[in-house]
């Protein structure tokens, strides 16, 4: 069981990173649409991972994405931020009966509604942080907001498509 979870997390890490670097980063729809699926790596990583370890993992994930699009440090800082606030989001979305030793946060036991609510708050927080860092100032408030909103909607669409495509039934 424990090994399975480890393999699942590694496969998810590689798969999502591949999708991000070679599919989503190549999308050239509009200046406002920059979908990011890699936050899912951090959001779905094994639940009881030590916070500092998760942040370190987030940092390296971010650096890999940064290296691909030449934004050194920007994705890393947004990813670390997401890893930092993940315990609070998990706390907020705790099911009535607690997580009951559910380690894999992509588990269908938690329900589809829970998944969408949890990931959308996480992805939104990540996008707000990232696009503000990217703009580096607040003078383009409307364009930053548009970028956050449009990219967020497309990111969530991708994440839901991902959820339907790679449902993790076999693990449980």
């Amino acid at each position: 069981m424990k090994d399975n979870l480890f393999i699942l997390n590694v496969v998810r890490f590689l798969g999502l990173l591949f999708l991000q670097l070679f599919v989503l980063n190549e999308i050239e729809l509009h200046n406002f649409i920059n979908p990011y699926i890699y936050p899912l790596i951090i959001l779905l990583f094994a639940r009881t991972t030590k916070p500092w370890l998760l942040m370190l993992l987030a940092f390296f994930t971010g650096i890999i994405v940064d290296a691909n699009v030449n934004t050194l440090g920007m994705h890393a800082s947004a990813a670390v931020f997401l890893a930092f606030i993940r315990p609070a989001i998990l706390q907020f979305f705790q099911p009535r009966l607690g997580y009951n030793e559910i380690e894999d946060l992509g588990s269908p036991k938690l329900g589809f509604q829970w998944f969408v609510a949890y990931t959308s708050i996480g992805v939104l927080a990540h996008h707000i942080f990232y696009f503000i860092i990217e703009a580096w100032d607040f003078t383009f408030f409307i364009s930053i907001s548009m970028r956050i909103l449009c990219s967020f909607l497309v990111s969530m669409l991708m994440i839901i498509i991902y959820k339907f495509t790679f449902a993790t039934k076999r693990i449980n």
Partner: peptide, 30 residues
């Protein structure tokens, strides 16, 4: 966790600033 967060963010911001303001040879670009 809080200090890990501060430390990593500090590293990120140093990276961002270095990358954007100097023509440094860095190994983490495309």
């Amino acid at each position: 966790p809080f200090f890990t967060f501060l430390f990593l963010e500090l590293v990120c911001f140093i990276l961002i600033i270095n990358h954007h303001h100097y023509q440094r040879v860095s190994y983490l670009h495309s």
